[in-house]
Amino acid sequence: MTSADILLLALGAVAIGAAFRVVRTSHLVRAGLWLVVTLGAVAGVYLVLAAELVAWVQVLLYVGAVVVLLLFAVMLTRAPIGASADLDRPGWAGALVGGGAALGLGALFVDGYRWQKVGLPAPGTAEALGAQLFQHWVLPFEVLSVLLLAALVGAIVVSRPET
């Protein structure tokens, strides 16, 4: 067990614990803040696995923008301080789906790799990632960008007031 392994386990535990708080807490805004912790811990996992760029993209986009947008929207509409009693939905259905998916995926992974050792790939530096993206994967990349552009234009059209 190397120190990287221990770090990975610790970060994973933080991510899962915080994710559990996200779905369990009845404080609306606190759920969003726990989400920040989860996403930050996942970024830490990427860092330990030497995927530098992906880790920092995760921080820039998810922590710095997506969650902030989410909190912003919640605060604009309804953000009571303290527990919201009316949030108490039966959790067993969610627990079933979430736990089932996690167990299934876990079983799949364990079955796929058993005890074989997989070395870390080359570090995911910006240069390596850029070369891959613009040489090998350029078509999917461009298709994705067209999709995003279409979504953007669509959002503008939908939100425009009718004149």
């Binding site: 803040l33 920040v36 920092w56 921080v59 820039l60 922590v63 710095g64 923008a65 909190l71």
Partner: peptide, 9 residues
């Protein structure tokens, strides 16, 4: 840039 962006939280 990523880290400075976290300040909003």
């Amino acid at each position: 840039l990523a880290v400075v962006g976290v300040g909003v939280v």
